[in-house]
């Protein structure tokens, strides 16, 4: 339940990136969140509206892409997607899998902005 501090980091990070686009308005912020990242989307959405007030992100939409857990299965020699977090076993061969390839991501993938050309670079 540290979603508020996560949103504060997002606001800070996006605001920094906006410096390259003066006067631009943020339409959408897209996140990639792994299923093991300990972050709940509903809670993020709830905090987002409050924590973005009076920031350049106010009124923008938050899109959360949840990434499933992908493990490498040694016996199968390939990456496999876990259907749930209740068992870290390969869904194909049933062997335990410990080599995590995806699932802990917590990142801002992209932002969609509307540029204001009155502020375009000379």
């Amino acid at each position: 339940m540290h979603e508020l501090s996560i949103i504060s980091s997002i606001v800070e990070s996006v605001t920094e990136s906006l410096a390259a686009y003066p006067g631009a308005q943020v339409i959408e912020v897209r996140l990639r969140v792994g299923a093991l990242a300990s972050v709940v989307e509903d809670s993020l959405q709830f905090c987002y509206q409050i924590a973005t007030e009076d920031t350049p992100l106010a009124g923008s939409k938050l899109v959360v892409n949840v990434l499933p857990v992908v493990m490498h299965c040694e016996p199968c020699g390939q990456d496999v997607t876990l259907p749930s977090l209740q068992s870290f076993r390969c869904p194909q061969c049933g062997e335990f899998v410990a080599d995590l390839r995806q699932g802990r991501e917590l990142e801002i993938e992209a932002i969609e902005i509307e540029e204001n050309h009155d502020h375009a670079h000379c």
Partner: peptide, 16 residues
């Protein structure tokens, strides 16, 4: 006004 997608690929907990 034009819309643009800016790829950031920034870790949210990058500072930590």
């Amino acid at each position: 006004m034009t819309t643009r997608i800016v790829e950031l690929r920034k870790g949210i907990l990058k500072k930590n």
